[in-house]
Design a protein around this nucleic acid. Sequence first.
DNA 1: GTATTAGTTCGTGAATCATGAACTAAGGGA
DNA 2: TCCCTTAGTTCATGATTCACGAACTAATAC
Lengths: 104, 104
Amino acid sequence: MRVLVHPPIEDVTLQAVLYALADPVRLAVFADLVDATEPKACAIYLTVNDTPVPKSTLSQHFRILREHGLIRSERRGVEMLSTARKDELDAKFPGLIDSILAAA
Amino acid sequence: MRVLVHPPIEDVTLQAVLYALADPVRLAVFADLVDATEPKACAIYLTVNDTPVPKSTLSQHFRILREHGLIRSERRGVEMLSTARKDELDAKFPGLIDSILAAA
DNA sequence: GTATTAGTTCGTGAATCATGAACTAAGGGA
DNA sequence: TCCCTTAGTTCATGATTCACGAACTAATAC
C-alpha cells in the first residue's frame, strides 16, 4: 500500500474540483464529509443514496477525492479517517463549494 | 444531420453542469460565451488557450455543452450560433456559474 | 500463531474519448 | 443550373478511462 498523496492547495485546480465532484457518489461522500464534525471512515459509504457501492469502487472514489485535493485522509488503526478540505478550498475558490453543495 | 437537442432547464442536473465544465476546452468556450453580448459561431474556438482544437473534437464539445443544458445553438446560414443559458442556470443553481467563472 | 475488519491493488471487460476522413447543409457566384 | 467554399456533423477506430470481483495488505484482538 502506497503512501497517501495530498496535493498542496496551490496545486489544486478548478478543473480537478469539478471533475472530482462530477460523479454522484463522490459528490455525496464529499457533501457528507463537509457536514461532518469529525473525521469519518469510508466504510460508512458502502451504500450511498440507497444504492450499494462496491468496496473497490469506493476506494477508487476516495483516492480521486484525495489526489484531487478535496479531502485529507489518514490511517487510524484499521480504518482510514477522512475530512473535507473545506477551509482551504473556500480560501482558494470563494463561494464555489457552497454553491455546489447548495445545488446538490 | 440530426435536430439539435436542448433539454428544458428542469432536466438540467448539477452533475451534468459539473461534468460539462470539468473539461478545460468546454469551460473556456462556455466562459467566453457567457461574456459575449451576441451569439457566436464555434469556428472561433478552433484555437483555445493558444492550442488548436480539431474541428470534430470541437463539434463534440459543443454537442456536450448543448445536450447538458449549458448553451443554446441555432443554425444561421452556414454557421451555428450559440449562446450561454446563463439566466436559466443562475435561476436554477444560484451563484454556481458565477463562482465557477470567478475561479477560472 | 489465527481471525477479523478496513481498505488497497490488480486484472479485465465495458464504456467513453479524441481525432482524421468522409459527409451534409447553406450560400455565393459564374 | 452546377460547382465552389465554408461551417459543422457523423463515422470509425485506436487510446484512455472506468467499474468491480478477486486477491492482497495492514492493523488489531484473541
